[in-house]
C-alpha cells in the first residue's frame, strides 16, 4: 500500500467507518444516559432565578473567582489547548472543506500562519497538561489508562497535522494519511471514552445549572 493509497482509504472507507462508529456510539451513549431518567422535582422552584441550565452551559466556560490562582496550569493549559485545538479544527481551510463535503456548510478560514500558531500552542498546552497530570498528586490519583489514551488520541491529530503541514520527518502524503487516520481513531474512541465529554458536557452543565437554577442560584 502506497501512502497515497493509504490516504485514499482514509478519505474513503476509513472516514465512513469512523464517522459511522462515532454516530452509532454517540446515539447509543445518549440513550444510555437519558434512559436512567430523572424524577420530576416536586419542590416549588423559585420564580425569578438568575440561574438556569442554559446559562450554566455557557458560564461554566469561565473560571470561578479565585480558582485560576489555585490551578493555573489546569486552567491556562486547558484554555490554550481547547482554543488552539478548536481554531485549528474549525478555521483551517482544508478542515472547513471537510465539513463542507460532509454537510454543505462552510465559513471563512484563517491564514495558515494563524493556524500554525494555534496548533503549536495547542500541542504545547497538551504537553503541559500531560506533565501536570503526571506530577499533580490529585490528577495522578484520578487518572487511569483511559485518561492517557484520550490524551494521546487528542495529541496525534495535532501532531500529525503539524508534521504534514510543515513536511517534517515524513513524506507529506503519508503524513496526511496518518493525520486523517488519527482523526478517525479519535472519532471511533470519542463515544466510548472520556472524549465523550465533548457531547455530554452540554448535558451535565445543563443539569447542574437546572438543579442550582431552580433554587435561585446561578451556578
Amino acid at each position: 500500500m502506497t501512502p497515497l493509497e493509504l490516504l485514499t482509504w482514509a478519505r474513503g472507507p476509513g472516514l465512513s467507518i469512523a464517522l459511522a462508529i462515532c454516530a452509532f456510539g454517540i446515539l447509543l451513549r445518549l440513550f444510555e444516559i437519558f434512559s436512567l431518567g430523572r424524577k420530576a422535582d416536586l419542590s416549588k422552584a423559585r420564580e425569578h432565578s438568575p440561574g438556569s441550565g442554559w446559562r450554566t452551559i455557557l458560564s461554566r466556560s469561565l473560571p470561578p473567582p479565585g480558582l485560576m490562582k489555585r490551578a493555573p496550569v489546569t486552567y491556562i493549559g486547558g484554555y490554550v489547548f481547547h482554543l488552539g485545538f478548536a481554531i485549528t479544527l474549525f478555521f483551517f481551510v482544508p478542515h472547513i472543506e471537510l465539513v463542507r463535503g460532509l454537510t454543505g456548510l462552510s465559513w471563512p478560514g484563517l491564514p495558515t500562519q494563524v493556524i500554525d500558531i494555534s496548533a503549536v500552542a495547542g500541542l504545547l498546552a497538551l504537553i503541559a497538561v500531560l506533565a501536570s497530570r503526571l506530577s499533580n498528586p490529585v490528577k495522578r490519583l484520578l487518572s487511569g489508562f483511559q485518561d492517557y489514551l484520550a490524551w494521546l488520541l487528542t495529541f496525534l491529530p495535532l501532531a500529525t497535522g503539524y508534521l504534514a503541514f510543515h513536511h517534517l520527518l515524513i513524506d507529506y502524503t503519508l503524513a496526511l494519511a496518518l493525520h486523517i487516520l488519527s482523526v478517525e481513531l479519535l472519532l471511533v474512541a470519542l463515544p466510548f471514552t472520556k472524549l465523550f465529554h465533548t457531547v455530554s458536557v452540554f448535558v451535565s452543565r445543563w443539569y447542574n445549572g437546572d438543579i442550582f437554577g431552580r433554587k435561585g442560584v446561578a451556578s
Binding site: R11, G12, S16, L19, A23, L28, R29, E32, P94, G101
Partner: peptide, 28 residues
C-alpha cells in the same frame, strides 16, 4: 478538495446513527 471525503458518507452515517438509536433503545 483533498480533505473532503471521497465517498458520500451521509447514508452510512445516517444508518449508523439509526443503528445507534436502535441499540440505544434496547439498552435504554
Amino acid at each position: 478538495p483533498l480533505s473532503m471525503p471521497i465517498a458520500p458518507v451521509q447514508m452510512m452515517v445516517g444508518a449508523a446513527a439509526a443503528g445507534g438509536a436502535i441499540a440505544g433503545t434496547a439498552m435504554a
